[in-house]
């Protein structure tokens, strides 16, 4: 199994397209950092300016490394599934397209092992991608902008988390984000087993995510009631839950607390269930697959 995983990782990391994601993420993050370094205050004034009437807003202090990392993740994590689909959607269908899948299936390993190795290789890729993102978005932002309390805007609330209470939340958030992206990878893997060319599964994954995200975010009562609870995209934003802090009866924040811990746990449970379902379905489909190419 380990040998199979090594082979799969070798296949992933020898393809130039794998590095597109790393380059795109680096470019995007560096552009945001540069923009916020130069115009961070203006961006914050645009976001929070309507509070200016009632409060002195410490814009320059809010524009710190922790806040910039949050802003980057907020903008980027919606799009990263597309980058994951680029690799995971190709992992089986790409081989079918090239004609190497039949060779692989003829080796003395079970088809289940092949699929599981491919899934684990996708997981490794997702974690590497998030590690890269954390390195640039968090570490580099802290180096460039320094650390301070993080201020997180919700549509009806503003949460301030003290500096000393932030770092663990980022570890948890990246952990959660990796789970959400592994779920995307497992969906792509399933679609990849159903196709003999790479484009189909990649485009299908992206389309499913876009449609589900739109339904999740449209705030239409009909969809909210009957569709939203069953869509995985509803739970993929759970990483943000680590930045919504709990408050006491006086409205003061409680260090180390979460506003809605059960919702995060529920999201983790739902995402795990989706992963198990998609991977199991992939194994099932691949075991039954008639490999003709």
């Amino acid at each position: 199994m380990w040998k199979l995983l090594q082979i799969e990782l070798f296949k992933i990391f020898r393809k130039p397209r794998t590095y597109i994601a790393f380059a795109a993420i680096a470019a995007f993050i560096l552009l945001i950092q540069l923009a916020l370094l130069v115009n961070g205050r203006q961006y914050l004034e645009f976001m929070l300016g309507f509070l200016d009437d009632g409060f002195f807003i410490p814009y320059d202090q809010i524009n710190n490394g922790y806040w910039i990392c949050f802003t980057i993740l907020n903008l980027l994590l919606i799009h990263v599934p597309i980058l994951v689909a680029l690799v995971a959607g190709d992992i089986v269908s790409g081989e079918a397209n090239m004609g190497t899948l039949r060779l692989l299936a003829s080796k003395p390993v079970s088809r289940s092992q092949i699929i599981l190795a491919k899934f684990m290789a996708s997981v490794f890729y997702v974690i590497a991608l998030l590690f890269w993102m954390a390195l640039i978005a968090l570490v580099l932002s802290l180096v460039l902008f320094g650390a301070n309390d993080v201020v997180v805007a919700k549509s009806t609330e503003l949460h301030q988390i003290e500096k000393a209470d932030v770092l663990w939340r980022y570890f948890a958030a990246f952990g959660f984000a990796s789970l959400a992206l592994i779920m995307v990878a497992s969906l792509s893997l399933l679609l990849s087993t159903l196709s003999d060319n790479s484009i189909g599964p990649i485009v299908a994954t992206v389309c499913i995510i876009i449609v589900c995200t739109l339904i999740s975010e449209m705030q239409i009562p009909l969809y909210d009631k009957y569709l939203r609870p069953y869509l995985f995209t509803t739970y993929m934003l759970g990483w943000k839950g680590f930045f919504y802090i709990g408050v006491d009866a006086d409205g003061q924040t409680i260090k180390g607390s979460l506003q809605n811990g059960p919702a995060i746990l529920k999201s983790i449970g739902v995402l795990l269930a989706y992963i198990v379902f998609f991977v199991s379905a992939s194994v099932f489909v691949f075991r039954k697959k008639d490999i003709l190419s």
């Binding site: 976001m47 309507f50 509070l51 907020n74 919606i78 805007a153 919700k154 549509s155 009806t156 609330e157 503003l158 975010e217 705030q219 909210d224 009631k225 939203r228 609870p229 509803t234 739970y235 934003l237 759970g238 990483w239 943000k240 839950g241 919504y244 809605n260 919702a263 529920k266 999201s267």
Partner: peptide
């Protein structure tokens, strides 16, 4: 205090 959800992308499992 009200910001568009399209900007904040709130995490809300039970929006009601």
């Amino acid at each position: 205090y009200k910001m568009p959800k399209g900007m904040t992308f709130d995490f809300e499992v039970d929006s009601e």
